[in-house]
């Protein structure tokens, strides 16, 4: 399975709201940890290392070249 880059949800506002509320009242240090926990939870849910590697590549691409 490859990473889905077309629209895959009918509830984008709900998802975005969850991501924002996840950080409510946290300082940057706490937020960094919460993000890492979130990524690990979702990475396991996805399970396919190729999908995660592709997402990581795209996420990184705006700031640095591929490794």
């Amino acid at each position: 399975m490859s990473l889905k880059l077309d629209i895959n949800t009918t509830a984008p506002d709900d998802i975005y709201d969850s991501l924002i509320r996840m950080h409510e009242g946290l300082d940057d240090e706490q937020s960094a940890h919460v993000n890492a926990r979130m990524i690990l939870l979702l990475a396991n849910h996805i399970g396919d290392p190729a999908v995660i590697a592709e997402a990581a590549r795209i996420a990184r691409s705006a700031y640095a070249p591929d490794l």
Partner: peptide
């Protein structure tokens, strides 16, 4: 790096409560 440490500690922290994190 700081971020590598955050990921490492997050794996250890999650492992206490969730089986999925332990193989990491």
């Amino acid at each position: 790096t700081r971020m590598e440490k955050i990921f490492r500690d997050s794996v250890l922290e999650l492992s206490r409560d969730f089986a999925f994190a332990r193989p990491f």
